[in-house]
Amino acid sequence: MTAVVTRARVARRRVVMPGARRGAAVHAGVGALLVVWILAPLLPSALWSVAHTWQAPAVLPGSYSGAAFTVLLQPGTLGAALTSLLLGGCVALVATPLGLLGALAARALPGRRGRAVDLILLAPLAIPPFALVMGVNITLLRLHVPAFAGVALILVVTALPYTSFMFRSALTAYEGRFDDVARTLGAAPPQVLRYVRSPLLAAATTRAFFLAFLVGWGDYITTLLAGGGRLSTLPTLLGAAASSPGSEQLTAVLSLGVIVPPLVVLAALALPTVTGPLSRGVRP
Protein backbone atom coordinates (compact mmCIF):
# COMPACT_ATOMS: atom_id res chain seq x y z
CA MET A 1 0.00 0.00 0.00
CA THR A 2 2.80 2.40 1.00
CA ALA A 3 4.67 1.58 -2.21
CA VAL A 4 1.58 2.36 -4.29
CA VAL A 5 1.16 5.72 -2.54
CA THR A 6 4.85 6.54 -3.01
CA ARG A 7 4.70 5.64 -6.72
CA ALA A 8 1.63 7.81 -7.12
CA ARG A 9 3.41 10.72 -5.44
CA VAL A 10 6.45 10.32 -7.67
CA ALA A 11 4.23 10.18 -10.74
CA ARG A 12 2.42 13.31 -9.63
CA ARG A 13 5.72 15.10 -9.15
CA ARG A 14 6.79 14.22 -12.68
CA VAL A 15 3.71 15.73 -14.28
CA VAL A 16 4.84 19.06 -15.69
CA MET A 17 2.42 21.34 -17.46
CA PRO A 18 3.32 21.95 -21.12
CA GLY A 19 3.19 25.73 -20.58
CA ALA A 20 5.67 25.51 -17.71
CA ARG A 21 8.00 23.35 -19.83
CA ARG A 22 7.83 25.87 -22.67
CA GLY A 23 8.52 28.73 -20.22
CA ALA A 24 11.55 26.92 -18.80
CA ALA A 25 12.89 26.33 -22.33
CA VAL A 26 12.48 30.01 -23.20
CA HIS A 27 14.26 31.01 -19.98
CA ALA A 28 17.12 28.61 -20.71
CA GLY A 29 17.39 29.91 -24.29
CA VAL A 30 17.45 33.54 -23.25
CA GLY A 31 19.99 32.71 -20.53
CA ALA A 32 22.25 30.98 -23.05
CA LEU A 33 21.99 33.94 -25.44
CA LEU A 34 22.97 36.32 -22.63
CA VAL A 35 26.00 34.22 -21.77
CA VAL A 36 27.05 34.16 -25.46
CA TRP A 37 26.50 37.92 -25.74
CA ILE A 38 28.68 38.59 -22.69
CA LEU A 39 31.41 36.12 -23.60
CA ALA A 40 31.54 36.82 -27.38
CA PRO A 41 33.74 39.96 -27.05
CA LEU A 42 36.27 37.84 -25.16
CA LEU A 43 36.59 35.36 -28.01
CA PRO A 44 38.93 37.46 -30.24
CA SER A 45 41.22 38.15 -27.27
CA ALA A 46 41.19 34.46 -26.33
CA LEU A 47 42.07 33.46 -29.90
CA TRP A 48 44.72 36.17 -30.30
CA SER A 49 46.37 35.11 -27.03
CA VAL A 50 47.16 31.67 -28.46
CA ALA A 51 47.59 32.69 -32.13
CA HIS A 52 51.13 32.08 -33.33
CA THR A 53 50.20 33.23 -36.84
CA TRP A 54 46.85 34.74 -37.89
CA GLN A 55 46.68 36.50 -41.20
CA ALA A 56 43.70 38.05 -42.90
CA PRO A 57 41.36 36.92 -44.32
CA ALA A 58 41.59 33.67 -42.27
CA VAL A 59 38.74 33.26 -39.82
CA LEU A 60 40.90 31.36 -37.33
CA PRO A 61 44.62 31.51 -36.50
CA GLY A 62 46.93 29.58 -38.85
CA SER A 63 48.96 28.13 -35.96
CA TYR A 64 48.75 28.19 -32.18
CA SER A 65 51.20 28.85 -29.36
CA GLY A 66 50.86 29.58 -25.64
CA ALA A 67 54.32 31.15 -25.44
CA ALA A 68 52.98 34.68 -24.94
CA PHE A 69 51.50 33.69 -21.57
CA THR A 70 55.00 33.68 -20.11
CA VAL A 71 54.78 37.47 -20.08
CA LEU A 72 52.34 37.17 -17.18
CA LEU A 73 55.08 35.64 -15.05
CA GLN A 74 57.69 38.28 -15.82
CA PRO A 75 58.67 40.52 -12.85
CA GLY A 76 57.44 43.68 -14.61
CA THR A 77 54.00 42.20 -15.20
CA LEU A 78 53.76 40.73 -11.70
CA GLY A 79 54.78 44.09 -10.24
CA ALA A 80 52.12 45.84 -12.32
CA ALA A 81 49.52 43.26 -11.25
CA LEU A 82 50.46 43.82 -7.61
CA THR A 83 50.13 47.59 -8.04
CA SER A 84 46.70 47.10 -9.67
CA LEU A 85 45.70 44.82 -6.83
CA LEU A 86 46.81 47.33 -4.22
CA LEU A 87 45.15 50.20 -6.06
CA GLY A 88 41.86 48.28 -6.35
CA GLY A 89 42.07 47.22 -2.71
CA CYS A 90 42.82 50.73 -1.43
CA VAL A 91 40.04 52.28 -3.50
CA ALA A 92 37.58 49.64 -2.26
CA LEU A 93 38.69 49.96 1.36
CA VAL A 94 38.09 53.71 1.35
CA ALA A 95 35.12 54.01 -1.04
CA THR A 96 33.05 51.25 0.60
CA PRO A 97 32.68 52.78 4.07
CA LEU A 98 32.37 56.24 2.52
CA GLY A 99 29.57 54.94 0.30
CA LEU A 100 27.81 53.52 3.36
CA LEU A 101 28.13 56.80 5.24
CA GLY A 102 26.89 58.74 2.21
CA ALA A 103 23.92 56.44 1.78
CA LEU A 104 23.08 56.66 5.49
CA ALA A 105 23.25 60.45 5.31
CA ALA A 106 21.05 60.54 2.21
CA ARG A 107 18.52 58.30 3.95
CA ALA A 108 18.58 60.19 7.22
CA LEU A 109 18.10 63.63 5.71
CA PRO A 110 14.54 64.47 4.77
CA GLY A 111 13.29 65.63 1.37
CA ARG A 112 15.48 67.97 -0.63
CA ARG A 113 18.50 67.71 1.63
CA GLY A 114 18.55 63.94 1.18
CA ARG A 115 18.21 64.32 -2.58
CA ALA A 116 21.04 66.89 -2.56
CA VAL A 117 23.32 64.32 -0.88
CA ASP A 118 22.25 61.77 -3.52
CA LEU A 119 23.11 64.27 -6.25
CA ILE A 120 26.55 64.94 -4.79
CA LEU A 121 27.26 61.22 -4.45
CA LEU A 122 26.22 60.48 -8.03
CA ALA A 123 27.83 63.58 -9.59
CA PRO A 124 31.16 61.88 -10.49
CA LEU A 125 29.22 59.64 -12.89
CA ALA A 126 28.29 62.69 -14.93
CA ILE A 127 31.89 63.87 -15.25
CA PRO A 128 34.11 62.15 -17.84
CA PRO A 129 37.25 60.77 -16.08
CA PHE A 130 39.47 62.66 -18.52
CA ALA A 131 37.87 65.97 -17.53
CA LEU A 132 38.03 65.06 -13.86
CA VAL A 133 41.73 64.28 -13.96
CA MET A 134 42.92 67.24 -16.04
CA GLY A 135 44.10 69.91 -13.69
CA VAL A 136 43.97 67.64 -10.67
CA ASN A 137 47.27 66.05 -11.67
CA ILE A 138 49.00 69.46 -11.59
CA THR A 139 47.49 70.20 -8.18
CA LEU A 140 48.61 66.83 -6.84
CA LEU A 141 52.14 67.45 -8.09
CA ARG A 142 52.20 70.90 -6.46
CA LEU A 143 51.03 69.40 -3.19
CA HIS A 144 53.71 66.69 -3.45
CA VAL A 145 51.10 63.94 -3.15
CA PRO A 146 52.71 60.59 -4.02
CA ALA A 147 51.51 59.15 -7.34
CA PHE A 148 49.84 56.10 -5.82
CA ALA A 149 47.99 58.12 -3.19
CA GLY A 150 46.92 60.72 -5.74
CA VAL A 151 45.54 58.12 -8.14
CA ALA A 152 43.79 56.26 -5.33
CA LEU A 153 42.27 59.52 -4.08
CA ILE A 154 40.78 60.36 -7.48
CA LEU A 155 39.59 56.80 -8.05
CA VAL A 156 37.80 56.83 -4.69
CA VAL A 157 35.76 59.76 -6.02
CA THR A 158 35.05 57.79 -9.19
CA ALA A 159 34.04 54.70 -7.19
CA LEU A 160 31.85 56.54 -4.69
CA PRO A 161 28.70 56.67 -6.88
CA TYR A 162 28.80 52.88 -7.28
CA THR A 163 29.32 52.11 -3.61
CA SER A 164 26.79 54.66 -2.39
CA PHE A 165 24.24 53.44 -4.93
CA MET A 166 24.73 49.85 -3.74
CA PHE A 167 24.14 50.87 -0.13
CA ARG A 168 21.30 53.19 -1.04
CA SER A 169 19.45 50.26 -2.63
CA ALA A 170 20.25 47.99 0.31
CA LEU A 171 19.18 50.58 2.88
CA THR A 172 15.91 51.15 1.05
CA ALA A 173 15.10 47.51 1.69
CA TYR A 174 16.63 47.56 5.19
CA GLU A 175 14.07 47.78 7.94
CA GLY A 176 15.37 50.25 10.52
CA ARG A 177 13.19 48.71 13.20
CA PHE A 178 15.46 45.64 13.20
CA ASP A 179 17.81 47.87 15.20
CA ASP A 180 14.99 48.84 17.57
CA VAL A 181 14.01 45.21 18.09
CA ALA A 182 17.62 44.24 18.76
CA ARG A 183 18.01 47.06 21.28
CA THR A 184 14.89 46.04 23.18
CA LEU A 185 16.20 42.47 23.18
CA GLY A 186 19.24 43.67 25.08
CA ALA A 187 21.73 44.41 22.31
CA ALA A 188 24.02 47.39 22.92
CA PRO A 189 24.73 49.59 19.86
CA PRO A 190 28.03 47.81 19.01
CA GLN A 191 26.21 44.47 19.22
CA VAL A 192 23.47 45.78 16.94
CA LEU A 193 26.14 46.78 14.43
CA ARG A 194 27.91 43.43 14.63
CA TYR A 195 25.03 40.98 14.89
CA VAL A 196 22.22 42.72 13.01
CA ARG A 197 23.24 45.54 10.74
CA SER A 198 26.48 44.07 9.38
CA PRO A 199 25.05 40.66 8.44
CA LEU A 200 22.00 42.26 6.87
CA LEU A 201 24.16 44.61 4.81
CA ALA A 202 26.86 42.01 4.08
CA ALA A 203 25.71 41.29 0.52
CA ALA A 204 25.56 45.00 -0.36
CA THR A 205 28.97 45.56 1.25
CA THR A 206 30.49 42.77 -0.83
CA ARG A 207 28.98 44.11 -4.03
CA ALA A 208 30.06 47.69 -3.24
CA PHE A 209 33.58 46.52 -2.37
CA PHE A 210 33.81 44.54 -5.60
CA LEU A 211 32.64 47.42 -7.77
CA ALA A 212 35.05 49.84 -6.10
CA PHE A 213 37.85 47.32 -6.50
CA LEU A 214 37.06 47.08 -10.22
CA VAL A 215 37.34 50.86 -10.54
CA GLY A 216 40.88 50.72 -9.18
CA TRP A 217 41.87 47.46 -10.84
CA GLY A 218 40.83 48.37 -14.36
CA ASP A 219 41.53 52.12 -14.48
CA TYR A 220 43.74 53.45 -17.27
CA ILE A 221 43.19 57.19 -17.83
CA THR A 222 43.45 58.37 -14.20
CA THR A 223 46.47 56.15 -13.54
CA LEU A 224 48.19 57.45 -16.65
CA LEU A 225 47.43 61.15 -16.16
CA ALA A 226 47.37 61.56 -12.38
CA GLY A 227 50.14 59.03 -11.94
CA GLY A 228 52.27 60.96 -14.39
CA GLY A 229 53.61 57.73 -15.87
CA ARG A 230 55.19 56.78 -12.55
CA LEU A 231 52.68 54.04 -11.80
CA SER A 232 52.86 50.80 -13.74
CA THR A 233 49.62 48.82 -13.53
CA LEU A 234 48.20 46.04 -15.69
CA PRO A 235 45.98 48.47 -17.69
CA THR A 236 48.95 50.81 -18.37
CA LEU A 237 51.02 47.82 -19.53
CA LEU A 238 48.11 46.79 -21.72
CA GLY A 239 47.83 50.31 -23.14
CA ALA A 240 51.51 50.34 -23.96
CA ALA A 241 51.30 46.93 -25.62
CA ALA A 242 48.24 47.90 -27.62
CA SER A 243 49.97 51.00 -29.00
CA SER A 244 52.93 48.95 -30.30
CA PRO A 245 52.40 47.51 -33.80
CA GLY A 246 52.67 43.74 -34.20
CA SER A 247 52.07 42.91 -30.54
CA GLU A 248 48.55 41.51 -30.89
CA GLN A 249 49.32 38.29 -29.03
CA LEU A 250 50.98 40.15 -26.12
CA THR A 251 48.09 42.60 -26.00
CA ALA A 252 45.55 39.76 -25.93
CA VAL A 253 47.39 37.97 -23.11
CA LEU A 254 47.55 41.16 -21.04
CA SER A 255 43.85 41.78 -21.79
CA LEU A 256 43.00 38.39 -20.38
CA GLY A 257 45.25 39.17 -17.42
CA VAL A 258 43.10 42.20 -16.67
CA ILE A 259 39.74 40.55 -17.40
CA VAL A 260 39.99 37.06 -15.91
CA PRO A 261 40.87 37.71 -12.21
CA PRO A 262 37.78 39.87 -11.52
CA LEU A 263 35.62 37.30 -13.33
CA VAL A 264 36.99 34.59 -11.05
CA VAL A 265 36.26 36.72 -7.98
CA LEU A 266 32.76 37.46 -9.31
CA ALA A 267 32.11 33.77 -9.85
CA ALA A 268 33.36 33.01 -6.34
CA LEU A 269 30.98 35.62 -4.92
CA ALA A 270 28.03 34.56 -7.05
CA LEU A 271 28.36 30.81 -6.69
CA PRO A 272 27.03 30.55 -3.13
CA THR A 273 23.84 32.35 -4.16
CA VAL A 274 23.42 30.13 -7.21
CA THR A 275 24.16 26.83 -5.50
CA GLY A 276 22.76 27.38 -2.02
CA PRO A 277 21.39 29.78 0.54
CA LEU A 278 23.05 33.14 1.09
CA SER A 279 25.78 33.42 3.62
CA ARG A 280 24.25 33.49 7.07
CA GLY A 281 26.52 36.29 8.18
CA VAL A 282 27.66 36.67 11.76
CA ARG A 283 25.69 34.36 14.02
CA PRO A 284 25.34 35.66 17.55
Binding site: F178, D180, A188, L200, A202, R283, P284
Partner: peptide, 24 residues
Protein backbone atom coordinates in the same frame (compact mmCIF):
# COMPACT_ATOMS: atom_id res chain seq x y z
CA UNK B 1 19.37 52.91 27.86
CA UNK B 2 16.96 50.76 25.86
CA UNK B 3 18.93 47.55 26.23
CA UNK B 4 19.07 47.85 30.01
CA UNK B 5 15.39 48.59 30.60
CA UNK B 6 14.46 44.92 30.76
CA UNK B 7 11.58 45.36 28.35
CA UNK B 8 10.77 43.65 25.07
CA UNK B 9 8.77 45.09 22.22
CA UNK B 10 6.78 43.20 19.61
CA UNK B 11 5.78 45.21 16.54
CA UNK B 12 2.92 44.79 14.10
CA UNK B 13 5.42 43.17 11.74
CA UNK B 14 7.28 40.28 13.31
CA UNK B 15 10.67 41.70 12.20
CA UNK B 16 12.45 38.39 12.62
CA UNK B 17 16.13 38.67 11.75
CA UNK B 18 16.31 37.16 8.25
CA UNK B 19 19.93 36.01 8.62
CA UNK B 20 19.07 33.82 11.61
CA UNK B 21 16.91 30.72 11.77
CA UNK B 22 13.94 30.41 14.11
CA UNK B 23 15.78 29.15 17.19
CA UNK B 24 18.62 31.65 16.82
Amino acid sequence: PVEERGMALVFQRALLFPHLNVVD
